[in-house]
Design a binder for these strands. Structure first.
Lengths: 107, 107
DNA sequence: AATTATGTTCGTATATTTGCGAACAAAAGA
DNA sequence: TCTTTTGTTCGCAAATATACGAACATAATT
């Protein structure tokens, strides 16, 4: 009889995906990915939303492990979390590559 | 002065990511990805949730364009949407690869 | 014409997400 | 010490998401 629980990898992948599931957070990640300097203010400037909302999105990305923050008073410097970014690459890569739909037809 | 709106690609990536942002939907996609036969009942059997909930998750995946369904009365056959799966691969691939964090240090 | 098998939709309850302004916190500068 | 700069947190409102059982729909079977 099958174990119907979700696997750790499925949970982790879903957690990353969920964190990426909002255009503002995609934009933030994309901005951080190609910057070296990455202060809150710079991020806020790029986005069409209030600073309280930006802060909230950053918090979610941090909790998902995709970014990290560092206080450089009075500013706060954010950046990609390298280890977890790498993990996300592997999880998404494997996930998206495991589809047989290019080889065999289902529908 | 910068255009603060989200790009089409960012919106699309977020839409895919959001659809993948739940372990049940990851499990469904993973199951479909490696199957040729893919009836609703088979999917439901794999998951620890009620059929009404499974149906709802399938609807979301369909609306996101990641899967498609086909009635084969009295069953319903689901499968990966090949074109959009390919698009997702490209979008996630480019997105995850554009990070400089392996080359330069930010934090 | 009933019955069965297979899924979907409806109605509902609860929880989470998204967004904002206002208030707050902390450290630097006047 | 008062002020300024920079972000975070709080409190709230509105919208979405998650989950389920019950009711419904549809076509095949008896």
């Amino acid at each position: 009889m099958a174990n119907k629980d979700y696997s750790i990898r499925q949970e982790q992948l879903a957690r990353f995906a969920k964190a990426m599931g909002h255009p503002a957070r995609i934009a933030i990640l994309q901005f951080l990915a190609k910057q070296e300097t990455c202060y809150f203010g710079d991020i806020h400037e790029e986005l069409p939303i209030a600073k309280a909302t930006v802060s909230q999105h950053l918090k979610e990305l941090k909790e998902a492990g995709l970014i990290q923050g560092e206080v450089e008073s009075p500013k706060v410097k954010y950046c990609i979390n390298r280890d977890n970014w790498q993990l996300a690459k592997e999880l998404f890569g494997n996930f998206l590559d495991q589809c047989l739909c290019e080889k065999k037809r289902c529908c």
